[in-house]
Design a protein around this nucleic acid. Sequence first.
DNA 1: AATGAATGAGCCTTCATTCAT
DNA 2: GATGAATGAAGGCTCATTCAT
Lengths: 225, 225, 225, 225
Amino acid sequence: MPSSSLSPRKSPVQARAVETRRRILDAAARVFSRHGYAAGTTNRIAAEAGLSIGSLYQYFPNKDAILVALVRTHMDDGAAAVGAAAVEARHLPLDDLTSRARLVVDAFVDVHAGDPALHQVLFEQAPRPPELLAELRALEDAAVAVAVELLPVADRGTTARATTARVVVTTIESLVHRLIATTEPAMPVDDVRREVTAVVVRYLSADPGALDPSSRRSSKRSVEK
Amino acid sequence: MPSSSLSPRKSPVQARAVETRRRILDAAARVFSRHGYAAGTTNRIAAEAGLSIGSLYQYFPNKDAILVALVRTHMDDGAAAVGAAAVEARHLPLDDLTSRARLVVDAFVDVHAGDPALHQVLFEQAPRPPELLAELRALEDAAVAVAVELLPVADRGTTARATTARVVVTTIESLVHRLIATTEPAMPVDDVRREVTAVVVRYLSADPGALDPSSRRSSKRSVEK
Amino acid sequence: MPSSSLSPRKSPVQARAVETRRRILDAAARVFSRHGYAAGTTNRIAAEAGLSIGSLYQYFPNKDAILVALVRTHMDDGAAAVGAAAVEARHLPLDDLTSRARLVVDAFVDVHAGDPALHQVLFEQAPRPPELLAELRALEDAAVAVAVELLPVADRGTTARATTARVVVTTIESLVHRLIATTEPAMPVDDVRREVTAVVVRYLSADPGALDPSSRRSSKRSVEK
Amino acid sequence: MPSSSLSPRKSPVQARAVETRRRILDAAARVFSRHGYAAGTTNRIAAEAGLSIGSLYQYFPNKDAILVALVRTHMDDGAAAVGAAAVEARHLPLDDLTSRARLVVDAFVDVHAGDPALHQVLFEQAPRPPELLAELRALEDAAVAVAVELLPVADRGTTARATTARVVVTTIESLVHRLIATTEPAMPVDDVRREVTAVVVRYLSADPGALDPSSRRSSKRSVEK
DNA sequence: AATGAATGAGCCTTCATTCAT
DNA sequence: GATGAATGAAGGCTCATTCAT
């Protein structure tokens, strides 16, 4: 009945429900991050959210749904961040590969730096339903498409463009993830940004002619020497 | 009770025990690979090993010990394979970076290609005790040390040698793992070998002067130049 | 507060309450019929009635009360229908047993044919409180009394009149119920009417002398006779 | 290792397992009989059997399996008892309908008299899987077949033989069940035996010509007479 | 009176682990 | 040493019921 309200907000009921949902998700993030997936029990999550177990199940049909919601949130956030970076990158000169890559890498780093432990749980430890896996793959495909367009990804000798693009995307993703998630003498985030960018840019910049690693024995000549 | 100094063999009893241990570990590998960690129950492992659950517990104090043993085995195998590759690589000329890197990358690929699903379980999905994580880290440190010695890892501008070396090691590890373990249109193993090698070699070969990604905007000027 | 003695109607408020009660009961009937007692949750009933769960609990103190109300309704309906049939039957000649029985059987069939699944839930599946069971028994006793009066139930050899009457009532009840509720190649309702009537009539009509099943072996001789 | 035992019993292990199974089933029978299906929790059954809940689940995969086992047992027992009675009945002269019927009725009574409350739970209250229902129907069909053969079931006017046979079977079943299961002033079992037999025999013996209840209004004329 | 979010006891089930044989 | 039946803590989840709004 918000007949003349300027802010077309959700009705109180819904607004509260939305907030409770958030609270559960936040609690789940904390619990999963701390205890991992298996030990992140629904009871613990409910307690952490300050709710009864029954209430939790009024918002999510089962434990997996909570996980999926969390994964989707992070996927969306990641896609948004990287997408924004890509848009920004397009405004930079085509030949300034470093700056372009850096923008994208930074987005990835920001996404991962938030809660590495949670990321670990969400994307490695927990059993994700096939459908979610498919979405994840689709997202990566989209990222590959962006990479092709954004970076000068060309066939280089034996290597097809698609392969190069996928290597680029996978490198950024996995390297950032590993460098940040791997505990202990954590690498300073700035170093991560700089080095991952370097890895990608150099991979793409190398003069194919001077540096063909296509066959294990291409080095033959130097060996003969 | 080594009866003769010439035959340092284990007594029959011990030998049998060792073999049973192996059987359990092999069974666990198969079970974890197929079902994941959580669904890889001790009973299933015992059944797969053709043992009673009681017997299994005479060889391992608990489920975690099985996992740890498995992880250690794979760590050792990996270390051996990479170590052997490193030894071989040392015989190649210092400037044939590609061949040297390729040798190491191949070792990593071989280690991962065997049973990607198991690797996933052992190194991502299962909750590993802190002590094991420490060992893992030590192993990586050793790998970094080898990398420093084996590859022409030098300080490049802002980047300390240790950082470069760690990036190299992490890149190989995570990229190979991801490229092989990530299901679906799996990348041909040969492509993986070639491209990972390329990534590493180019990262290390780039002329530091011409390609300094140290600051996000520094590149602009070089472009204008 | 009946404002006028001429209109013994309930006040609007009460009338509405009565109607809401009805709505709940109807909804419960549908839900129990479809899902059974256990799966017929109060929330489902409330939803089916277009009410909030809170409102439902303003009309019934608990789930069992709903069931009891439903059972009572059906008991009353049944009693009314059978009672009416009995009244009508009394107008038929005493010796037209078939018509008299048929009238009663038809009443039973009509009662059961309406919603067999619901009947099943109400009278077999759901746990009925002892007090309700007592009412049920009382009702049956009444039916027995009617049977004694309506049908020529007389002592027959070893069998007391009360027993015969109870057998008649139970036969009609259970046979109609079973023949109609038992799924699958359901027997046509008309066959049910005819056969159940036949069972009862023949049971009551048989020449007691010619057909004494009182002892297992006594019959042999009578056959020989 | 029962190499030379005269009684080819199951090995100790199996024998014990079989006995434990029995204990669980017996406990379940008592618990279901006392508390009904819903309130007959697996924990209660385990406790009643003097076992831990874990052990119970080593013998039955879930609660329903226990119910099904119980139902099957009773179906088998019933089929055996009735079958034996049928065999015995066949040795009686064809025209001694009463004795033949009595034999069968007695079998039914014996089956039901054991634990009426449990029967109620097993065959009315509990949710039985469709597959079990199918078996139940098959069993009834078999019973109908036996009835056709055993008793002089012939077409009588409007009524097909199949209908008559089914009515006979259903009458015995439902009447015995109801007469015995219905609590309180329980009818003496001997009365049940005698009267149910009478109902069936008279249903089958009546002179079809003299007693045709085929149409509701056929009686009108006789009234007018 | 109505609403529906919240509650929590309790259910079914799993599985690592123990221990009598 | 081997066996496998037994154990029971703990987990995911449901649903009748309450209560603040």
